[in-house]
Amino acid sequence: MSLELPLSDELAGVFARMSGLLLSEETVGSVLRLVTRLAQETFPDTTGAGLSVLDPGGARITAAATDQLVERADRVQYEMESGPCLVAWADRVVVRVDDLAHDTRWPRWTPFATELGLRASLSAPLVAGDTALGAMKVYGTRPGMYGAREESLLSMFATQAAVLVANAKSYADAHRVSAGLQASMRGRDRSTSPRES
């Protein structure tokens, strides 16, 4: 049985625009926020969506989220180093939780999530080449909200987001290398310039 995944014109248009962007930090942030908002709108009754990545210092952060509920659920996963989003990221697999109130995989995190009113979640890894860059997730307030169709759709969103994150990382790395080379050249110029007597 094949999964039919009809995309709206808006979603197809966003993916097309994203693939051609020349990115700066400002455009990456705004596009990632757009991706999370569209993910929330694409999955009926979804409470919120978010993207987790590493910051330049190597700490896990939520780079974009539709609301504070997502940020709180994510922050506790990072603090506890436990939760579906982190498993999706580390294992490079889609992780679906049909009912957080009865799931036993993350015994420290799920009670907190259910206190927030969350009952279902779906997380997909952000993978570019051989590198796992983070994860994208959606949360819902009803059990059983997500199935195979939603897994495929979220994987599509995560693929597009991974391209953006990888491009932003390349941009930042190139900027750091350029700044380092400029500083090195300035230092070399000072050390080789003739000294006044």
Rank of each mutant, 00 (worst) to 15 (best):
G147C: 05
F157T: 10
D74Q: 11
T110I: 07
R92V: 07
P6L: 04
D98N: 04
V97S: 04
P111D: 09
Y78H: 14
E196P: 01
V87T: 15
G58F: 11
V165S: 08
T131Y: 05
E150I: 00
L69W: 03
V163C: 12
G147R: 12
M185A: 08
G144A: 13
R186K: 13
E115F: 01
G180Q: 06
A168F: 05
A162G: 05
G144F: 13
L5A: 03
L21H: 13
V28S: 12
D99I: 02
D173E: 10
T131Q: 12
A162M: 08
A132N: 09
V127E: 11
A162P: 04
V127M: 10
T27C: 00
Y78S: 11
V35S: 04
L38F: 08
Y139D: 09
V28R: 10
G57P: 01
Q40K: 15
Y139K: 07
H102Y: 02
S52P: 00
L23A: 01
F112Q: 01
T46R: 00
L181S: 07
R176I: 07
A73K: 02
D45F: 13
E150N: 00
L86D: 04
L51I: 15
V94N: 14
S152D: 13
A162T: 06
R119T: 05
A128K: 07
Q68M: 12
L3E: 13
T62S: 09
Y78M: 13
T110V: 11
P44F: 09
R190S: 09
L22K: 12
F15V: 03
A39W: 08
I61R: 03
A59L: 06
V70I: 12
A63K: 04
P194T: 07
S184C: 01
S178T: 06
V14T: 15
